[in-house]
Structure formats: structure tokens, C-alpha cells
């Protein structure tokens, strides 16, 4: 296994996986506890519209995708705040329209046919040195912002009304959080693909939430789990020559089902206990 490390693309892939795991562990925790997984999915898919725009108009890929995605994300956030009871429908519409727009714009782009699959599952093995630097920069920014506003985000996520009474600027923070989701999605979409982004954002935080006594620990556990899933996935995909993004997702899904199974066993044992006590 270690002989693989001599290849630069493998080392880059591992580093990209580590950054993705850390960023998704942090942002994913806030996504899961605020129950905005659907919103995060919507942002990730609608980002495809931005990719289409970039190719059609021959604009800078990153600048165009990032601004489009942040625009859509903030629109979704505004809908969440103002029309809460219908927000899921509107987000579903934006989700689909963004994706369709991306596909059509790429159809209309002369002489260029992008492989949709590479955006769905990414191509972590082709991460370049410059991609990596960009990821590290944006990752550091996300860690700084999240830690600076940690107490406020905690209050906002747990009890927004009380947070508001304490003078926490809840609307600003809500938009900031959703902006950070958009940033993470764009930063990771070419590397790990939008499906893997959603998997990294949701599966590990979900497992971590059950065992963590505090939000801080939940972030810590989700980052650890993400690193575990990503590295094991990378190793499996290298060893058995499988599609990397999909392998990482299947490893995460394996972790997810093991954790569910663990719950069932624990539940079963608790139910058995009084019976075995009686037998004594």
C-alpha cells in the first residue's frame, strides 16, 4: 500500500481527501443539527448551473461557479427564512432548474462536451497542485470563520429565539452559514463530486451526533469519521481499481449501516436486560 505514496497524484488525492473531510466534518455538523440537509443537496446540485454558465460564456470556471452558487444558496436561505412552510418545494424547484440549466448550457456550448459523471463523482485522482493550494486556503478560511462564530452558531442552531434575545445576529449568521455551505460545495465539486460532498456532509455528522456530548465533539468525531472513510475508500479504490468517489461513498454508507446495526443491538440488549434479571 505504501508504495502507492510515491506517486504525486496519490499524495495529492490523499491531501484533497483530508481537506474535504475536515471541511465537510465542520460544515456538515451544522447542516445536520440545523436540519438543512435538503438545502445543502439543493445547493450542490444547483451549482451545476454555474458550471454550465462558465463553459457557455467562456468565463473563469471558479469565479463563475462560485458566484452563481452563492447567489442560488442565498436565494434559498431567504426562502427558508420567509416562507418556511413551503421552502422545501421551492428548494426542490431550484435544485432541478439549476441542474437542468447546467446540462442545457453545456449542450449549447460548441465543441465542448463535459462529462457529467466527473461532476457527480469528481475526479480526486486528478487534483492538481494549484487546486490543492486553493482548497487549503478556502478550508482554512472556513475553519477560522466557524471557530470565530462557534458560540453564536451553537446558540442559533439550538435555540434561535433565545439567541436572538441575547443579541445574536441570527439572520446574518444564517446567511453566513449557507454561504459557507456554498463555498464548500464549489471548492469540492470538481475534486470529489457533488454526490460525495453530500455524503461527506451528512453521513459522518449523523453517526457522530449519536455519540457526541457536545457540538464541538460532534464536529471532532465527524472530521475523524470523514478522514477514516475517505482514506479507506481511497485505498480500496486504488487496490481494486474502482471509481474513487463512489468507493468513498460506499465505505461511508457501510459505516452508516454499521452504526444503525449497533443501535439495534444496543436497543435489543436493553430490552433483554430486565428478562435476564428476572431469570436470576
Amino acid at each position: 500500500m505504501f508504495d502507492a505514496l510515491q506517486f504525486e497524484f496519490i499524495r495529492n488525492a490523499i491531501l484533497a481527501g483530508v481537506v474535504a473531510g475536515v471541511v465537510c466534518g465542520i460544515i456538515g455538523t451544522f447542516v445536520v443539527v440545523n436540519r438543512i440537509v435538503f438545502l445543502a443537496g439543493g445547493i450542490a446540485h444547483a451549482a451545476y448551473g454555474g458550471i454550465g454558465l462558465a463553459f457557455f460564456f467562456g468565463l473563469n470556471y471558479l469565479a463563475c461557479t462560485l458566484s452563481f452558487t452563492i447567489f442560488v444558496a442565498l436565494l434559498m436561505a431567504a426562502i427558508m427564512l420567509n416562507a418556511k412552510n413551503r421552502s422545501d418545494t421551492f428548494i426542490g424547484v431550484l435544485w432541478a432548474v439549476g441542474m437542468a440549466m447546467g446540462v442545457l448550457l453545456l449542450d449549447l456550448t460548441p465543441g465542448y462536451h463535459v462529462d457529467l459523471m466527473s461532476y457527480l463523482f469528481g475526479s480526486i485522482l486528478t487534483v492538481s497542485q494549484s487546486d490543492l493550494w486553493l482548497m487549503l486556503g478556502l478550508g482554512a478560511l472556513i475553519v477560522l470563520v466557524a471557530s470565530y462564530f462557534y458560540k453564536d452558531f451553537l446558540a442559533l442552531s439550538y435555540d434561535a429565539e433565545f439567541a436572538q434575545l441575547r443579541g445574536v445576529p441570527i439572520k446574518f449568521l444564517y446567511f453566513l452559514l449557507i454561504g459557507m455551505i456554498a463555498l464548500s460545495v464549489v471548492m469540492l465539486i470538481r475534486v470529489v463530486g457533488l454526490i460525495l460532498v453530500i455524503a461527506l456532509l451528512t453521513i459522518s455528522p449523523y453517526i457522530a451526533e449519536k455519540y457526541a456530548g457536545s457540538l464541538q465533539k460532534m464536529i471532532f468525531f465527524s472530521v475523524l469519521l470523514n478522514l477514516l472513510f475517505t482514506l479507506v475508500g481511497l485505498w480500496l479504490s486504488y487496490t481494486y481499481n474502482l471509481t474513487c468517489g463512489a468507493t468513498i461513498i460506499m465505505v461511508s454508507a457501510g459505516g452508516f449501516f454499521i452504526s444503525l446495526l449497533g443501535d439495534r443491538i444496543k436497543h435489543f440488549r436493553l430490552r433483554l436486560k430486565p428478562i435476564s434479571n428476572k431469570a436470576k
Binding site: 470565530y148 462564530f149 439567541a163 445576529p169
Partner: peptide, 9 residues
């Protein structure tokens, strides 16, 4: 949370 002062970073 009762002692929370916003923007304390």
C-alpha cells in the same frame, strides 16, 4: 447560553 454576548469571537 444565558451568558452569551454576541460577537465575542
Amino acid at each position: 447560553m444565558g451568558r452569551l454576548h454576541p460577537r465575542q469571537g
